[in-house]
Amino acid sequence: MADEANRSAFVEIQGRMIELTGKLKQVQNQMRNKEGEKKRAFLTMEELRQLSDDTNTYKSIGRMFVLEPKSVLMNEQEKKLKDSESAITALQTSKEYIEKQMAEVENNLRELLQQDPGLARQIMSMVVT
């Protein structure tokens, strides 16, 4: 009976670990995307700063380009930069929280395996295909 309970606990912990790993990868991908957006906005702002204020600048909207004042484009890029930075900060907080949860699940798994060495041997003998 205890053996069956330990197996079900292991399966539950394993499922939780898989779920957390997926969430962590998702957050890391989102952070990578936001870093790219931030870098593009920064580089665009650097290029716009080099232009004189009376230069014709165009904003891309789909397949079309619209004439916009340089100041409008600069403001949009600054907003994108700030939004990306705040999103990265929020994602970093989420990442840290998920990592703490993963460490907790790992500790739970370690404790379970220490309590039931037979379960540990069964797991080690399994062949993953």
Rank of each mutant, 00 (worst) to 15 (best):
M1C: 07
D3N: 12
D3E: 13
A5H: 14
N6M: 09
R7N: 12
S8N: 14
A9S: 11
A9H: 10
A9F: 02
F10Y: 15
F10P: 01
V11A: 13
V11Q: 15
I13F: 06
I13Q: 05
I13N: 05
I13R: 04
Q14C: 15
G15L: 06
R16V: 09
R16L: 10
I18W: 08
I18S: 08
I18D: 03
E19T: 12
E19A: 13
L20W: 02
T21R: 14
G22P: 03
G22R: 12
K25S: 09
V27Q: 00
Q28L: 11
Q28I: 07
N29M: 11
N29T: 04
Q30D: 13
R32N: 07
R32F: 06
N33I: 01
N33G: 05
E35N: 14
E35S: 13
E37C: 04
E37T: 13
E37H: 04
E37Q: 09
K38H: 10
K39S: 03
K39D: 05
R40D: 01
R40F: 01
L43F: 14
L43C: 10
L43R: 13
T44E: 06
T44C: 05
T44M: 05
E46Q: 15
E46F: 00
E47W: 02
E47D: 10
E47K: 14
L48M: 12
L48R: 05
L48N: 06
R49E: 06
R49T: 02
R49N: 06
Q50D: 04
Q50P: 00
L51P: 02
L51S: 13
L51V: 09
S52P: 05
D53F: 04
D54N: 11
K59I: 01
I61L: 03
G62R: 03
R63Q: 05
M64I: 09
M64C: 04
V66G: 03
V66E: 08
L67K: 11
P69I: 08
P69W: 05
S71Q: 15
S71C: 12
V72N: 08
L73P: 01
N75T: 07
N75K: 15
Q77F: 01
K80A: 03
D83V: 00
D83E: 09
S84M: 02
S84W: 02
S84N: 02
E85D: 01
A87W: 07
A87Q: 13
A87D: 15
I88L: 06
T89V: 00
A90Y: 00
A90E: 06
L91I: 01
Q92M: 08
S94E: 14
S94R: 08
K95V: 01
K95P: 00
E96T: 09
Y97A: 08
I98M: 10
I98E: 02
E99Q: 14
E99I: 12
K100D: 13
Q101D: 14
Q101F: 08
E104C: 12
E106H: 11
N107I: 12
L109R: 15
L109Q: 14
L109W: 09
R110C: 09
R110I: 10
L113Q: 03
L113W: 05
D116T: 07
D116C: 10
D116K: 15
D116S: 15
P117M: 15
G118I: 15
L119M: 12
L119T: 10
V127F: 05
V128K: 13
V128R: 15
T129E: 11
